[in-house]
Every structure is written in C-alpha cells, then in structure tokens.
C-alpha cells in the first residue's frame, strides 16, 4: 500500500507539473507535448487503480491519435508561436473568475461528499477488465454507446463533406 502511495504522489506531481507546463509554455507544440505527457501520466493512474484496459485505451486514443492530429493542425497552420500581446482582453478576468468557480465547486464536493464514497480506496478490479467493459457497453450502456457511434459517424461524414472535392463531383 505504501509503495502505491509513493507512486501516486510522484505521479500526481508529474501530472500537475505537466498540466502547468502545458498552460504556461509559449510554444503550442510544447503545450501539446506537455498534454501528451499528462495523458500518459493519467493512464498510469488508471493502471494503479487496476484498470489496464482504460489505461491502454487512454494512451492509444488520447496520446496516440487525438494529440497527433492536434500537432498536425498546429504544424500545418504554422501557429506554434503565441503572440506576445493577448488578443482577447476580456479573456484573463473571465478565466480567473471561472477557475475560482471551479475551485469552489471542487472544494464543496470534496468537503461534503467524501463520506458517500467519491474517493474510494478499493481498486475497480472487477470492472477494469476488457470483458467487463465490453459486457457493460453491450448491455447496460448500449443506447449511449450507439448514440455516440452515430455522433462520431455524423462528425466524420460532415468532415468529408466539408473538405470534399467540389470541382469533380459537383453534387456535394
């Protein structure tokens, strides 16, 4: 248990450091890389909780697929460097206010709901295996699962239609 705690503390430090690094770095590519590190650290958290399937999926989907596309967009637009001056003057006060609201919400939840089991110590061994997740996806959460897949399909078709070659086909 103590090794788990030490591991958790180190990983938590890394996760927070990478998140802060992502926010503070002036180069968008570095920000994206910090975010990749953060995702990977979160994946290790899932491993610590005994959910290898979710951990590996986290790495594959977020770190492996989505962030690569982010990097693509950043590099293709050539917008790595942030301008020195802020473009949106109202952004900073709004961000401070919203962060404060989020913190209050988090504090409220932690101080009121700790007893009812939001922070649990027992690993999710029974629900972490691929079989368990598959069964849940195809029984209890079948409808949300299908709705999500239809949403993704719609997004995909939309992207294809938007970028489609209009000269050749003429009907898109």
């Amino acid at each position: 248990m103590t090794t788990d705690l030490i591991l958790f503390l180190i990983l938590a430090a890394v996760a927070i450091a990478t998140a802060v690094g992502m926010l503070l770095s002036r180069n968008a590519v570095y920000s994206a890389l910090f975010l990749v590190l953060n995702f990977t650290t979160v994946a290790v958290f899932y491993l610590l909780l005994g959910a290898p399937f979710i951990a590996i999926t986290q790495v594959t989907v977020y770190a492996g697929a989505i962030m690569v596309l982010f990097l693509f967009v950043i590099m293709l637009l050539g917008s790595e460097k942030l301008p020195e001056r802020t473009v949106l003057p109202w952004q900073k006060p709004t961000a401070v206010f919203l962060a404060f609201v989020l913190m209050v919400e988090g504090a409220y939840l932690i101080f009121t709901q700790t007893a009812s089991g939001i922070i649990t110590n027992n690993p999710v061994e029974s629900t972490g295996s691929p079989q368990a997740i598959g069964e849940l996806l195809f029984s209890e959460y079948l409808l949300p699962f299908e709705v999500t897949s239809i949403l993704l399909l719609v997004a995909m078709v939309g992207a294809i239609v938007l970028t489609g070659d209009r000269k050749k086909g003429g009907q898109s």
Binding site: P52, I56, V59, T60, G64, A65, V68, L71, S129
Partner: peptide, 25 residues
C-alpha cells in the same frame, strides 16, 4: 503477459508516431 496485450501493441505503435512528426518539426 497482460490481459490487454494486443491493445498494448496498438498503443505503443501509436506513440511511435511522435518521433517522426517531432523530428520533422
């Protein structure tokens, strides 16, 4: 010999892409 062995291969393969894209950039 983990129970997500095949997925592990997928995820490591998807991480390998970074070397290429970062090397170019």
């Amino acid at each position: 010999d983990v129970n997500v062995g095949v997925l592990y291969i997928m995820s490591v393969a998807s991480i390998a892409v970074y070397g290429v894209v970062l090397g170019g950039w």
